[in-house]
Amino acid sequence: MIENPPAPPPLTLSALTLSLPSAAGPVKILRGVDLTVSPGETVAIIGPSGSGKSSLISVAAGLETPTGGTVRLFGRDLGALDEDGRARLRRGRVGLVFQSFHLLPNMTARENVAAPLELAGRRDAMDEADAWLERVGLAARLTHYPHQLSGGEQQRVALARALAVRPELLFADEPTGNLDGANGARVADLMFDLLAQAGAALVLVTHDEALAARADRIVRMADGLIVPTGGEVSA
């Protein structure tokens, strides 16, 4: 009997570089990053401001094009895909949560969560959105617009939207950065609990050492590089 080959890692970065133009010449943001995230693994990326953490997520998710190197999502080389191809690859398999929420202001909480489900062709998008908003404690806020929600509530809507498609990989960039301690802890608890239930992998950028310590692995960045031997620390 022929065995099926193992699934490729959800994320593999090889010799990844990123330079951005400036008046003084190119600025090197990423300077040769290698990183592999295994299925179901949670990885926290920490480091000082300007170390390249957020740029790494943007490039890894296919939102920004690297200057050099390779990004593979689920074994597919993003460099071989155009923007539409990258979007199709992410659809239903990748979730994104940002510090600034990125909710659509003219949509209710329910509509914000349902939008990616509808794009994925789900006929039960609204019912599924309601169920996810209930899971994050917002059953009473279904028809509220973002401006009617607190920061913590908006972040929980964003988390429900990212996880409702049941992604295999979640990118989270400072997901608790705009929240107070209590709301940040609640969002973090929800995120890790729901990821564990789904068996999804996580790439988390954070300044919060306590939040990072909840991940399976901590990766430290400095000056556009992952800190070498001794800098990757198992949580």
Rank of each mutant, 00 (worst) to 15 (best):
W132Q: 03
L163F: 09
A109C: 07
Q99I: 11
A172F: 01
A139Q: 15
A164K: 01
M126L: 13
Q99F: 05
P105F: 09
P105C: 08
A158T: 04
W132M: 07
P105V: 09
D124L: 06
G181L: 07
N112R: 06
H147S: 14
A172N: 02
P175A: 11
A164D: 08
V157W: 00
G95I: 08
F171Y: 08
L149W: 06
V113E: 02
Q155M: 10
Q99H: 12
A114N: 03
G95W: 01
S100L: 09
V113K: 00
R156N: 07
M126F: 14
T176R: 00
L96S: 02
E168W: 01
A120V: 04
E153P: 07
E118M: 10
G95Q: 04
H147Q: 13
G181Y: 07
L138W: 04
D127R: 12
R166P: 06
T176G: 00
L169P: 01
V165A: 03
A139V: 12
S100Y: 13
R141W: 00
A139G: 14
H147G: 03
E153Q: 15
N178W: 01
R161M: 04
N178P: 03
L117T: 04
A114K: 06
R141K: 13
L96W: 09
E128K: 07
R135S: 12
L117E: 04
L133F: 03
V136D: 04
L119G: 11
L142A: 11
S100N: 14
A115R: 09
V97R: 00
L104S: 11
A160F: 06
A129I: 06
A125N: 08
F171E: 01
G95R: 03
R156T: 01
Q148K: 13
L179D: 03
V97T: 08
A131L: 13
L149Q: 09
T143Q: 15
P175Y: 01
A115E: 12
H102T: 10
Q155R: 07
G137V: 05
R156Y: 10
A172Q: 02
A158Q: 04
Q155C: 11
L159S: 00
A125M: 11
A125K: 03
F101Y: 15
A129Q: 05
A109N: 10
G151D: 09
L119Y: 15
N112Q: 06
A162D: 04
P116V: 10
A139Y: 09
P146W: 09
E134C: 10
V165S: 01
Q148F: 13
A140Y: 08
F98W: 11
V113D: 07
